[in-house]
Design a protein around this nucleic acid. Structure first.
Lengths: 230, 230
DNA sequence: TAGATTGTTAATCGATTAACAATC
DNA sequence: TAGATTGTTAATCGATTAACAATC
């Protein structure tokens, strides 16, 4: 009953699928680098650690880029995924907060090779201004709006302490930035239409700790102490 | 029909809930620091940006720690969540790979305050050995097993380049580490019983780019180019 | 043609959320 | 008691996966 035709492709891709497309893309790049020209869903799924049915379902949201009985052309599928994500274009990015993490981000080569180009590093600390980090000068935070507009920046990265993060987000939104990657351990309030993704190092460790804690105690279903002597 | 009693608490908490508990914990810490002693699910939910029904359902997996008509005692709920996650104990952690990211991790104060203690920094590069980073000496990667056992390390962080990550993971598993936080852009193969969480900076940016790409083109349902002039 | 593999269906599973009885 | 808020139910929604017809 649902009138799905070829023109629908690229619309309404489930979030869970969107989050996996970059993983597939990376695996395809690895395969291409190894000289592999064709691969099956089974092969690619094994490389990224997912169920092959899930992989095929994910790819089906993009279109029919495989050949039954044969598999997928690595270069072709790779291009289609890159196009779908928007990596065939260049994304100027600014980073606010040049502490240890900000410097690590500034020097991270993985961004550049995937279509992301850091065009400016900003910090509120005057004593840092003019300092060159990974080839870019540290500029005043107050110049955010001007810099963002000059470079057509749509994506901003927050690498400040938690207490500054909301102010930075507000300034980014004012400057027309509509996608924010937040490394500060704080919840950002942003208007509708602005996407925020959060990377939180200590939350990741806490999730691991939760599972780790369940591994150590004995399996018996008692309300025991469950502590092991140090 | 399901015989759920109070002794069940702390078992079978859904993954989605586990991932949110650290967020609740942080919000409760903020409230406590502000001197707030009681809060409603509505209030706490607003602070972390979730539906209050979801918050109450999440908390219900831990037990009944609220008071109808009143809300939650901030300090008490905070303790209960911390206990559930396992943050009432100390987690020794090692970091392998002392590049920019590894140094940022080593100096990140957020770990220590949440019960995680970095006990060693390791790197395969001999020229770095002995160098002191954030008060810890960089030690040889080959000493991983000894160091991990000496400190009872259960959680390891991989901050190496992608090509080294699998070897590091293998060594960690051999050394008895059963939880790994992987910052390298590679898929790790680990035996059952070992948890891996992955933080991938460029994947986060790619997910943002996907959504950003859908914002820019005009809404019309045409197969147009959708490119804006630079 | 026979074998292989995709793309899709449909069943299942897990997560979200509105609504409300329980109860402070 | 009246008002407020929890803890839980049940409906809904979205994601996963086995199975298989389509088809190269």
């Amino acid at each position: 009953m649902s009138a799905r035709n070829s023109a629908d492709h690229g619309r309404d891709i489930p979030e869970a699928t969107v989050a996996r497309l970059p993983v597939y893309l990376r695996a395809l790049t690895t395969l291409a680098d190894q000289g592999t020209s064709t691969c099956s869903s089974e092969h690619l799924a094994a490389a990224v650690g997912v169920n092959s049915a899930k992989l095929r379902k994910d790819l089906s949201y993009l279109g029919s880029y495989g050949t039954r009985g044969v598999g997928y052309d690595v270069a072709y599928l790779r291009y289609q995924i890159a196009r779908e994500i928007g990596l065939t274009q260049d994304w100027p990015v600014i980073v606010v907060g040049i502490g240890n993490l900000g410097q690590a981000l500034a020097s991270f080569s993985g961004f550049r090779s995937r279509g992301f180009r850091i065009v400016a590093l900003l910090d509120a600390d005057e004593s840092r201004h003019g300092e060159v980090v990974s080839g870019l000068p540290v500029e005043p935070f107050d110049d955010l709006a001007r810099i963002a507009r000059e470079h057509g920046v749509a994506i901003g990265v927050i690498a400040t302490p938690a207490h500054a993060a909301q102010d930075v987000a507000d300034a980014m939104v004012d400057a027309g930035i509509t996608s924010i990657l937040n490394f500060a351990p704080s919840v950002l309030q942003v208007p509708e239409g602005v996407d925020v993704r959060k990377v939180d190092l200590s939350i990741e460790l806490q999730i691991l700790a939760y599972h780790e804690q369940r591994k150590l105690p004995v399996a018996a279903d008692v309300d025991g102490v469950g502590e092991v002597s140090a």
